[in-house]
């Protein structure tokens, strides 16, 4: 029994490392966008490989756990939830990579200056991700309801930002490239918020075996 607990702890720790790695990728991608730091952007792109390797490692750990203990009830749900969780985290890493690539391609800082809402939409998914991971490790099944609301805010911000960007394209065709890149980035941000929500929705399943759907 003790061995099983140690293995669970090891999986949790590895998972935390991955989530921190992915969250840092995300934040660094945003920073590379806003201050146009190409070195940082390249670094983010490089780190995606690391995140993928880590996901594989956790996958392997989970499979070994299943083979070794043939877990039941809570432990089984834990492993299943982790297997789904790493997929979500990996996606977040992928989105961050794409954002970093956009940062390399376009000098977006000037356009961003006229979009004060971008600050909010760039930070909200990070907060959601961080809260979802806290909920996952802390076992707070009610969190996803709060995150659903935040997700709606992100959706509304996305809509309003897209409108501003379309207006910008009409006004200043020279900036069409940047504007489209930003629309793309904002869509990625919205997807990351979705992933965070998905993670939070796994928590009721993890703790009491109920499937939350929102």
């Amino acid at each position: 029994m003790e061995f099983m607990e140690i293995d669970i702890q090891n999986i949790k720790e590895k998972l935390s490392e991955m989530s921190v790695l992915v969250a840092n990728m995300y934040m660094d991608a945003i920073r590379s966008l806003t201050v146009h730091d190409e070195v940082l952007a390249r670094e983010v792109i490089g780190r995606d490989q690391e995140a993928d390797t880590m996901a594989l490692e956790i996958d392997e750990m989970c499979l070994r756990f299943l083979a070794r203990y043939a877990p039941k009830a809570a432990e089984l749900r834990f492993v299943v939830a982790i297997l789904r969780l790493i997929v979500e985290l990996e996606r977040v890493g992928d989105h961050s990579k794409v954002m970093a690539k956009q940062a390399l391609k376009y000098h977006l800082a000037p356009t961003l200056k006229s979009l004060p809402e971008f600050g909010e939409i760039s930070i909200l998914p990070y907060q959601m991700l961080s809260e979802a991971m806290d909920a996952f490790l802390g076992g707070w099944p009610e969190k996803f309801k709060i995150l659903e609301k935040t997700d709606e805010t992100v959706g509304a911000l996305q809509k309003s930002l897209n409108e501003s960007l379309v207006a910008l394209i009409k006004k200043d065709t020279a900036r069409t490239g940047s504007a489209i890149a930003l629309i793309n980035i904002i869509r990625r941000l919205e997807r990351i918020a979705d992933h965070a929500k998905n993670i939070a929705e796994m928590v009721p399943y993890l703790t009491v075996g109920e499937v939350a759907k929102g």
């Binding site: 607990e5 720790e13 935390s16 921190v20 969250a23 961080s130 991971m133 490790l137």
Partner: peptide
């Protein structure tokens, strides 16, 4: 105990330390 840590950031610190 590190098993009681629920914040991924902090847990990752202890994982890195270990």
């Amino acid at each position: 105990s590190t098993a009681q840590i629920a914040k991924p950031e902090i847990l990752s610190v202890f994982a890195a330390v270990k």
